[in-house]
């Protein structure tokens, strides 16, 4: 599945950036507050202290906000992954049910599933430890049972199901 992986990558980049922001903000905040505390220690409280307090507050709020955003982003990435899992599971069920309706034999089911995953005859033969001729014959029977003329049409049956 190529498309959802893009979405996941975007989520990952975003969360990595947010994590970096949180940490940079935290380090900056501590340095700033340390410096402000030193100023107060040296010169006592002054009008500057009020500004420093305000900036400190802003920095801390910034950390909290980025942290909260990071958490949201991580939750979104996770729920997308879960949705994908569910969709995968559902598709697998649809495929299994259809195979049963077509009365595929166990060997034909395997070959058909490999074919749906985009493997070519040679690859399927290697994986199953069978001759390419055997695999080709099995695929022909699968297509016949499904009433399609070839692999593209065969795959299209399930894509159609997905798109509704």
């Amino acid at each position: 599945m190529k498309l959802p992986r893009f979405a996941k990558d975007a989520g990952r980049r975003q969360s990595a950036a947010l994590a970096a922001v949180v940490l940079v903000q935290a380090v900056a905040a501590l340095f700033f507050m340390g410096d402000a505390a030193a100023d107060i220690d040296l010169d006592g409280l002054g009008p500057e202290s009020a500004v420093e307090a305000l900036v400190s507050l802003a920095l801390v709020l910034g950390i909290v906000t980025s942290g909260w955003q990071l958490r949201r982003t991580l939750e979104t990435v996770q729920s997308q992954a879960q949705a994908l899992e569910v969709a995968r599971g559902a598709l697998a069920e649809v495929i299994e049910a259809q195979f049963t309706r077509w009365a595929l034999t166990p060997a034909e089911r395997d070959v058909a599933l490999f074919a749906l995953k985009g493997l070519d005859v040679a690859e399927i033969a290697t994986l199953r430890g069978a001759a390419t001729g055997t695999v080709r014959a099995q695929m022909t029977r699968v297509y016949a049972k499904a009433g399609v003329s070839g692999r593209a049409q065969f795959a299209a049956l399930f894509v159609e199901d997905l798109l509704g």
């Binding site: 969360s15 947010l18 994590a19 949180v22 940490l23 990071l70 599933l113 490999f114 493997l119 690859e123």
Partner: peptide, 28 residues
């Protein structure tokens, strides 16, 4: 692609090992 349509055998007994989030990784 190229993976067998395997029955997912799970040696962990259902527990997903952690994938550390970016904050844990970067801070570490």
């Amino acid at each position: 692609m190229g993976r067998a349509p395997s029955l997912k055998t799970d040696p962990a007994g259902g527990v997903k090992p952690p994938v550390w989030d970016p904050l844990v990784r970067l801070s570490h």
